Simulated scan of single mutants.
Amino acid sequence: MADLPAVPSIGQGTVMANLHSKPLCYVHYKGIKFPPGYNSVENLCFAENEFEVQDDDIFNVTYPKSGTVWMIEILSLILNGGNPSWNQSVLNSCRAPWFTTQLGLEAAHLLPPPRLLTCHLPIHIFPKAFFSSKAKVVYTLRDPRDVLVSYYHFSKMCVPFENPESFNHFLESFLSGDVPFGSWFDHVTGWMKLKGKSNLLFISYEELKQDLFGIVERLCHFLGKELDEAAITSVVENTSFEAMRRNDMCNSTMLPKEFMDQEKGTFLRKGICGDWKTHFTVAQSEYFDKVYQEKMEGLKGIFPWEHTRQENHLGKGLNF
């Protein structure tokens, strides 16, 4: 569904207001470029090397536009026993802080355990302390063609992101990894190297769309937070696309125009699978498939969107 840092402070808002008045200058850290205004090399370095991970931390990790905000809402509800009061009264950026930013780090330090933390970090700059901890990661991934389309529309309305010249130009940038947060292919293949670890759970956007109730049950078991049927039903009902669109705590309408220009688009836009088919030409689709096959060598056949291509229906999930 979406991907939001904490609401900018007044000082950051001043920076945001000037971002589109001149060419963007992205923040670069270890080969990855990050949106300016709320990211800095210092904060990213701290997140990687000094962030203190607690054993009961729960990390919500995604590549942009892969269901980040959807998973925040699901995990928030699970942690609150299915009661929607927390989701409906506290901004998602405060419930699940983006700890790689200054504001997010401050919010993370205020959270009682178990902390829910969010980021788009690739594996090579994820907090080092995680790897010697019992903390858990929920990694959500999505058909990269739908990611690309959602990212394209998001970049047109989000001020700290460069406005795409055209869809075709953005497709080229996405396939080459020349977009904020780097290559989708590198991000996914990097994290997939940890598959099989007991403290890491992979979930696909497509599985969430196909069987949300079943995935919530799976997440509850992974987190050791068993809920009864009524509580799980509440999680499902309060994380429907329409429910989230109505919830100002997660639909981005609370963000200032200096950060998110709502006149240029809707943050929670469609929330569907297969929207790429309305954007890709035949030539673009063939080109994308060629690059995908080259970059995903060794991981073919395990993702739901590959089953849709082969069998014209959703697959049975991730074959781990």
Score class of each variant (00 low, 15 high):
Leu4Ile: 13
Ala6His: 08
Pro8Arg: 02
Ser9Thr: 04
Ile10Asp: 12
Thr14Val: 12
Thr14Arg: 15
Leu24Thr: 08
Leu24Ile: 15
Lys33Gln: 08
Ser40Gly: 08
Ser40Arg: 07
Glu50Phe: 03
Phe51Glu: 08
Val53Pro: 15
Asp55Gln: 13
Asp56Phe: 02
Asp57Pro: 01
Phe59Leu: 13
Phe59Tyr: 15
Asn60Asp: 14
Thr62Pro: 11
Lys65Glu: 12
Ser66Glu: 10
Thr68His: 13
Ile74Tyr: 11
Leu75Thr: 15
Leu75Ala: 14
Leu77Ile: 11
Ser85Pro: 00
Asn87Arg: 14
Ser89Lys: 06
Ser89Gly: 01
Val90Leu: 15
Leu91Cys: 13
Pro97Ala: 06
Thr100Pro: 05
Thr101Ala: 06
Thr101Leu: 10
Gln102Met: 03
Leu105Pro: 03
Leu105Gly: 12
Ala107Asp: 08
Ala108Asp: 11
Leu110Lys: 08
Leu111Arg: 08
Pro112Lys: 06
Pro114Trp: 02
Pro114Val: 02
Leu117Gly: 05
Thr118Lys: 15
His124Gln: 04
Ile125Arg: 02
Ala129His: 04
Ser133Asp: 05
Ser133Lys: 05
Ala135Arg: 08
Tyr139His: 09
Thr140Ala: 07
Arg145His: 02
Ser150Pro: 02
Tyr151Arg: 04
Tyr152Ala: 00
His153Phe: 12
Ser155Asp: 00
Val159Gln: 09
Pro164Thr: 05
Pro164Ser: 02
His169Gln: 09
Phe170Gln: 03
Leu171Met: 14
Leu171Glu: 11
Leu175Pro: 02
Ser176Trp: 09
Gly177Phe: 10
Pro180Cys: 12
Pro180Glu: 14
Ser183Gly: 09
Phe185Ala: 06
His187Ser: 03
Trp191His: 01
Lys193Ala: 11
Gly196Tyr: 09
Gly196Glu: 06
Leu200His: 06
Ser204Ile: 04
Tyr205Met: 14
Tyr205Arg: 15
Glu207Asp: 13
Lys209Gly: 00
Gln210Phe: 00
Asp211Pro: 13
Phe213Pro: 01
Gly214Gln: 03
Ile215Met: 15
Val216Asn: 07
Arg218Val: 04
Leu219Glu: 06
Leu219Thr: 00
Leu219Gln: 02
Cys220Phe: 13
His221Phe: 12
Phe222Ala: 12
Glu226Thr: 12
Leu227Ser: 08
Leu227Glu: 07
Ala231Trp: 05
Ile232Glu: 06
Thr233Ala: 15
Val235Trp: 04
Glu237Tyr: 12
Asn238Lys: 12
Asn238Gly: 11
Ala243Val: 09
Met244Asn: 03
Arg245Pro: 07
Ser252Gly: 02
Ser252Ala: 14
Pro256Thr: 05
Pro256Leu: 07
Pro256Arg: 04
Asp261Phe: 05
Gly265Phe: 03
Phe267Ser: 04
Leu268Gln: 03
Arg269Ala: 04
Lys270Ala: 04
Ile272Asn: 07
Lys277Ile: 08
Val282Trp: 07
Ala283Met: 03
Gln284Pro: 00
Ser285Ile: 04
Tyr287Asp: 03
Phe288Asn: 00
Asp289Glu: 14
Glu294Asp: 08
Met296Thr: 09
Glu297His: 10
Glu297Cys: 08
Gly298Lys: 09
Leu299Ala: 01
Lys300Phe: 09
Lys300Ile: 10
Ile302Gln: 11
Trp305Gly: 04
His307Ser: 00
Glu311Ser: 00
Asn312Lys: 11
Leu314Cys: 11
Gly315Tyr: 02
Gly317Val: 06
Leu318Pro: 02
